[in-house]
Design a protein around this nucleic acid. Structure first.
Length: 423
RNA sequence: AGAGAGGUGGCCGAGUGGUCGAAGGCGCACGCCUGGAAAGUGUGUAUACACCAAAAGUGUAUCGAGGGUUCGAAUCCCUUCCUCUCUGCCA
């Protein structure tokens, strides 16, 4: 959620910047600002009415104490009128405040100046590429065939137990999953991230805090009995750990990492691009989250990008980094770098990580602040990234490391798996 | 899941209808004292919103959350969430 104050003072600038997203902010902005104006004048009216009432109440108290019951009763009649008035104003104010909040929720984050203009993924800007794309020859198989051949992932079995998109990992496949999770967590904690184990279900407030609600409501599994949501990413519980806090500026930055399964309904997805591990309802991911002083957040974003690069280097997977264009940029993000691994057998790039700076957009909803030099509260910047999403890394390893009669395990993972080859 | 007790400021803790944003203590900040420190001592110490060009200041709201009773609620009533104790169940 954008800050009202910013909208009031930089209206034109923000409208201009949002054009990069192909988002016409003008109408929204006018609505927000006019609602805000109404809200403020109502607030003033209400405050004055309540103040008057408070004053009279005190008088009544005094009069009763000194036994002047009659005078007190006279004043009482005045307060009845004020009470009605304040009730009316409160109702009005609540309605306007709710409308205002809803209108604010409709406006996406302002893109960073480096975000390229563009309408879809075609316009994303490649900023980095590394690694050799192996020559696999004609025999190369996509990972879903490899998974079947070596009996390490069973999609049908998952469908039997639960439904499509809930695979079962078996034997060395399961072991490889576990190895990847441990390896990622080790890399992250070495880099100073504090490991967290968090709930996999969150309440509504947390969903709003990180911005999944209201705009991605349909993407989350909802446990209606308890009104809880299955997390679509560890970002939600981990970032909400700090919700509502006022941090000492010396406690910044705060860096967390956590492994969780992620649950996504993925309503509306279909076709070849969702085969195998490419798109699942349940998948594993290790996430990194940072809370930063606004002055340092872009430095932190670069550090996160470097960190993920290093992991992919160690895994010896061919990858590239994209700076997302305005049209492809997530609703809450100011700047996002996507990481993609090249899947040789599928002959396409697979997104495996997304690293974003949300600036104050999430912090504003989360009410997550720090105290500055002048003891004033300021919103922090929040960032997060995947390091990494398991299924596509797994797909990348299976496909790129395949040989005619087996799959090699990247050297860096062997201490974690305890084996160096799947046959 | 059932019965009972409770949720007050950064922390502890008083407060059962009136001037209470809330005693007292701890912590923290600044000052005094000291050669320096400790002890002592003085002052200050919540958040949001509105008014004001801004600071100062003023007003309003907030004692888990939401609603109600009342001229007036931290205090009474209802709903809900959470914590603790006992019973039950259970990995």
């Amino acid at each position: 959620m954008l800050q009202l104050q910013a909208l009031r003072t930089n209206k034109d600038q923000i409208i201009q910047a949002l054009k990069k997203r192909n988002f016409d902010a003008e109408i929204h902005m006018d609505k927000v600002l006019s609602l805000d104006e109404k809200r403020r004048s109502l607030q003033t009216d209400l405050d004055n009415t309540l103040a008057e009432g408070n004053k009279l109440s005190k008088e009544i108290g005094m009069l009763y104490k000194s036994g002047k019951t009659e005078e007190a009763n006279q004043i009482k009649q005045k307060t009845a009128q004020l009470k009605e008035e304040s009730k009316r104003l409160t109702e009005k104010l609540n309605t306007i405040a709710a409308d205002l909040e809803e209108a604010l929720y409709q406006i996406p984050n302002v893109p960073h100046e480096s975000v390229p203009a563009g309408s879809d993924e075609e316009d994303n800007e490649e900023v980095f590429r590394e690694g050799n794309i192996p020559e696999l020859g004609e025999e190369a198989k996509p990972h879903w065939e490899l998974a079947k051949k070596y009996d390490i992932i069973d999609f049908e079995l998952g469908a039997k137990i639960t439904g499509a998109g809930f695979p079962v990992y078996k034997g060395k496949g399961a072991r490889l999953q576990r190895a990847l999770i441990s390896y990622f967590l080790d890399k992250n904690t070495e880099a100073g991230y504090i490991e967290m184990q968090v709930p996999l279900l969150v309440n509504e407030t947390s969903g709003y805090g990180t911005g999944q609600l209201p705009d991605k409501e349909g993407q989350m599994y909802h446990v209606t009995e308890e009104d809880l949501y299955l997390i679509p990413t560890a970002e939600v519980p981990i970032t909400n750990v700090l919700r509502g806090n006022i941090l000492d500026k010396n406690s910044l930055p705060i860096s967390y990492t956590g492994y969780t399964p992620c649950f996504r309904r993925e309503a509306g997805s279909y076709g070849a691009h969702v085969r195998g591990l490419n798109r699942l309802h349940q998948f594993d991911k290790v996430e990194i989250v940072r809370v930063e002083h606004p002055d340092n957040s872009y430095q932190a974003l670069d550090a996160m990008v470097e960190h993920v690069k290093n992991i992919l280097r160690e895994l010896k997977l061919p990858f590239r980094v994209l700076r997302l264009c305005g049209g492809d940029l997530g609703f809450t993000s100011a700047l996002t770098y996507d990481f993609e691994v090249f899947s040789t057998a599928q002959d396409r790039w697979l997104e495996i990580s997304s690293v974003s700076n949300f600036e104050t957009f999430q912090a504003n909803r989360l009410k997550l602040r720090y105290r500055d030099e002048n003891n004033k509260t300021q919103l922090v910047h929040t960032l997060n990234g995947s390091s990494l999403a398991l299924p596509r890394v797994l797909a990348g390893i299976l496909e790129n490391y395949q040989t005619a009669d087996g799959i090699d395990i990247p050297d860096i993972l062997v201490p974690y798996t305890g084996f160096s080859r799947i046959e």
